[in-house]
Design a protein around this nucleic acid. Structure first.
Length: 435
RNA sequence: GGCCCCGUCGUCUAACGGUUAGGACACCAUUCUUUCAAGAUGGGAACACGGGUUCGAUUCCCGUCGGGGUCACCA
């Protein structure tokens, strides 16, 4: 069986992460079966549909790396002749009728409800059954040229040869209407799979008031698309072993029957953790390039120097801003507080003695190249160990950084170079003497 | 409210009648360490409740409770 799925967003809002997940699962399922996934825009709501939203969805799909085949034509608004044909057929057989009750005084087309029981087997949820009577004669079009959702979906899915409809659970109860229309038209039904919803921490449907919901926002914050895709996949399906997996691995291991039944709360912290994992394996040169692009205060050389410690601290690229602030001593002279030079459990006298000694050791050191942190460590380690590492290394680190918290002094010194290292130690020494 | 779906640590989940109920995120502790971060090690933490079925229920059935979805001339 040739599998054909579809991702049919209505361009009435920015690309939502819930939609993104639906697209992902449709793609993965189709890819697994060697089929295709079509994208079509359901823009029957002319008032709310906007080109800007179409573009956002398209850009989001591209960014996430979810491939699709564009339907032709792409929009439902370009297929009105089709719907008209089906609508006429429905009216002709009496399955639908015109009713004079249009909002603006015109007519609408209602579907004549046979009031039967509709059952279908959901790939995720199993046997489903609905009594359609309470639906009444629902409206399927404003008029012959203006179809509504249910009619348009049924017509398109049929025309495009859709074999599997994978969508959110919020569409579960829509299925009965669509099946009724299909039966009236004599169409073959697709297979259905209704996925659980993505929930906010308050267990409600995830929406804007709960924080970031548009794919674009995640891009702007500096998440990696692979991480978002991976996390979204996790919110509905569990891989055989590891939680971190690529799209290709997901396709290989995917099983629609194993998709979860209950809604999952979106956990931003776990997404961050995953993102950090992906950031970790980013090649050095790309990482450095990204850093210099996103944090212009550092040139490439400094960024390369800082890369190892940045990798430990950046969860999402947006963290770079705060880090650039925190690491300002790498590019500018720190302001020192004389009271803090000696650190805890030591005093100004011994602090200046240690700094004086370190300064001399650096001066006398055979090497002038400070580029390797270990070189610096080797110079002072013996002395620091003998005198007490805290007492010796804290003043050094503080003299170089002006901060109570920072990476180790060897790394800072190596980034600064010998000259600046010496001058900062001297500055601290002078400050100590003056106070 | 009617109809429908769902119910394992705080969160995401594993288990497909017999397990000390496993893992991940988060959290806490210890360790490493001059501080921070990262790392290593360890820890606390769950089967919603009540009936059945069964030699035996987290697992199967029913009910209760709880959560969610849907009831548009939106999709």
């Amino acid at each position: 069986m040739h599998v054909v799925t579809r991702f049919p967003p209505s361009p009435t809002g920015y690309f939502h992460i819930g939609s993104a997940r639906t697209a992902l699962f449709n793609y993965v399922f189709a890819a697994k079966e060697g089929g295709v996934m079509y994208l079509r825009f359901e823009d029957t709501d002319k008032e709310r549909s906007k080109k800007e939203y179409e573009d956002d969805i398209l850009a989001g799909l591209a960014w996430l790396g979810i491939p699709f085949t564009p339907a032709a034509p792409l929009r439902q608004s370009e297929r009105v002749e089709n719907y008209r044909v089906y609508l006429h057929a429905l009216i002709k057989t009496g399955a639908a009728y015109e009713a004079e009750e249009g909002l603006a005084g015109g007519k609408v087309i209602r579907f004549r409800n046979p009031n039967t029981r509709v059952t279908f087997s959901d790939l995720i949820r199993g046997e489903m059954g609905f009594d359609t009577a309470e639906l009444k004669d629902f409206i399927i079009a404003r008029n012959a040229d203006d179809p509504l959702y249910h009619l348009a979906v049924v017509a398109d899915d049929h025309d495009m040869g859709i074999t599997h409809v994978i969508r959110g659970e919020d569409h579960l109860s829509n299925t009965q209407r669509q099946i009724l229309i299909m039966e009236a038209l004599g169409f073959e039904r697709p297979r259905y799979a209704h996925m659980p919803l993505i929930l906010a921490p308050d267990r409600n449907k995830l929406s804007k008031r709960h924080g970031a919901v548009s794919v674009n926002e995640y891009k702007r914050e500096g998440y990696l698309p692979e991480a978002l895709v991976n996390y979204l996949a996790l919110l509905g399906w569990t891989p055989p072993e590891k939680e971190k997996f690529s799209l290709g691995e997901m396709i290989a291991a995917f099983d629609i029957g194993a998709v979860h039944k209950s809604g999952a709360i979106f956990d931003a912290r776990k997404l961050e953790w995953l993102n950090k994992e992906y950031l970790r394996e980013m090649p050095d040169d790309i990482f450095v390039k990204e850093v210099t692009r996103r944090a212009p205060v550092w040139d490439e050389r400094t960024a390369a120097k800082l890369a190892p410690l940045l990798r430990e601290r950046v969860g999402v690229w947006r963290d770079l801003g705060a880090l650039a602030e925190e690491f300002d001593y790498f590019s500018a002279e720190p302001k020192l507080d004389p009271a803090k030079v000696s650190g805890k459990g030591s005093d100004a006298t011994s602090a200046s003695r240690h700094l004086q000694t370190l300064h001399e050791m650096f001066m006398k050191a055979a090497v002038d190249d400070f580029s390797d942190p270990d070189t610096i460590k080797n110079i002072v380690w013996g002395y620091a160990t003998a005198e007490g590492r805290g007492a010796v290394l804290w003043p050094l680190r503080y003299a170089l950084s002006g901060r109570e918290k920072s990476p180790d002094p060897f790394l800072i010194a190596s980034s600064l170079g010998k000259e600046k290292t010496l001058s900062r130690v001297q500055t601290a020494l002078a400050l100590l003497k003056a106070s």
